[in-house]
Design a protein around this nucleic acid. Structure first.
Lengths: 223, 223
DNA sequence: TATAAATAATAGTATTACTATTATAAATAA
DNA sequence: TTATTTATAATAGTAATACTATTATTTATA
């Protein structure tokens, strides 16, 4: 079964829907490759224009600036996770199992269909780990928040919180635990890769370290 | 008792020690004010030169770029926390009490002497919350890490981890719990202020929310 | 085939992130 | 005291960034 996932991303994020044209898709594809490769700070529309074989001005017709483009990618990820959550939780009744699946979704590389994808999922996951907090750690967070650009993040957070509440109705910090789990999944993964002294990774537990830590943390919190 | 706290910050972070001259101190003071006011992305040496009543080129003699200047401020904060930890933990024997003091240090506004300070502690705390992750979420993290610029962060993390280990020697994720506590203190505080739907704050628990959540999380993890 | 829409090509601007040079003021050493 | 070093200020300049605007050309649709 072939299918491509398209999520309707908030219209305030783009000037022109990049999913609506070949050039738009090309811009998205290459921005993911380029941000992954050189990092968000070094990433510019000029460099993107070169690799996407288009012009700066053409890119500006899709996105106001590179921050919005990053926000688009991160939003796509949040929507994707939300979708995968529903998908993978379907028909699972065991509450503990449900939470384990959630934590795997947060920490593992993104599940990918076998066939060639428009979106490089591994790259997106690494971008989310290293760059996602930059979309809200900005001075105009309150302003852009009014346009509901963080809605998918909040919905994902709420959905996970609901499963936590379902597991233990007495627990009062379900949403904070949810946002903490999401952020910790990124932080710890980044630390494991770049600053391992901030973690307890070692050669033995290297595999799935972030998951193992998170599972321990979350289930104890919910106990 | 009047005293001023000076920490020797890693020499790779600055070109010329800003603590060594009036201009240097002026640069630090105004950079804290300005980063707090307009955010790190909008902050430039040109703007800083204007408010500090000096020139761009003079600032460049102290710091290579604004990233290094931010790193200096964040490093100062890490050293300060490390110092305050020793200071406040002195003579405390109760292990639970010790951890509570640590979590208060991480979440509360920084304790401040009554008299006029060179460093605006409230501003520094807000800068740490909103900007600190930007010092390591960069493409050249591995390179700058070689110069030990994150040593104070790692030491702080290790010191807190030690208290966790002391509280429960069987717990195997002390360092990850420590870095998670530090990061969560910032994240949740940011969310409470700007994106409260990602947390469980409400009018009742507003006061010390982040502390209350963290205390619950950490003690359950260590139980 | 005409017309509209999308894209490319080109040009241009203000700001950013620097580097370099020289002048002047302040601190210290001979 | 004068000479000399050192710090800072003033000035200039550059490459890159982050855009905006205009016109030409291609592509899609009526």
């Amino acid at each position: 079964m072939e299918f491509s996932l398209t999520f309707k991303v908030n219209e305030h994020i783009y000037l022109r829907n990049p999913e609506s044209s070949d050039l738009g898709k090309k811009i998205l594809k290459h921005s993911i490759d380029l941000i992954y490769e050189i990092g968000f700070e070094q990433f510019t529309f000029k460099k993107l224009a070169t690799v996407a074989e288009t012009t700066e001005s053409s890119i500006y017709r899709y996105f106001e600036n590179k921050q919005k483009l990053l926000l688009y990618i991160i939003n796509w990820y949040w929507c994707y996770l939300d979708f995968m959550l529903d998908y993978q939780l379907k028909n699972i009744t065991d509450k503990k199992e449900k939470i384990k699946i959630i934590l795997h979704l947060l920490t593992d590389e993104m599940p990918s269909n076998n066939h060639e994808m428009e979106m490089n999922k591994y790259f997106i996951h690494r971008i989310v780990i290293a760059e996602s907090s930059k979309v809200y750690l900005v001075k105009d967070v309150n302003e852009i928040n009014q346009y509901e650009v963080f809605k998918p993040f909040k919905e994902l957070c709420a959905k996970i919180a609901k499963e936590f509440a379902d597991y233990n109705p007495a627990y009062i910090f379900t949403k904070s635990l949810s946002s903490t789990a999401i952020e910790t999944a990124h932080d710890q993964e980044f630390f494991v890769t770049h600053l391992p002294r901030l973690t307890d990774v070692n050669t033995k537990n290297k595999k799935n370290f972030t998951y193992t830590f998170l599972e321990d943390l979350v289930f104890k919190a919910l106990a």
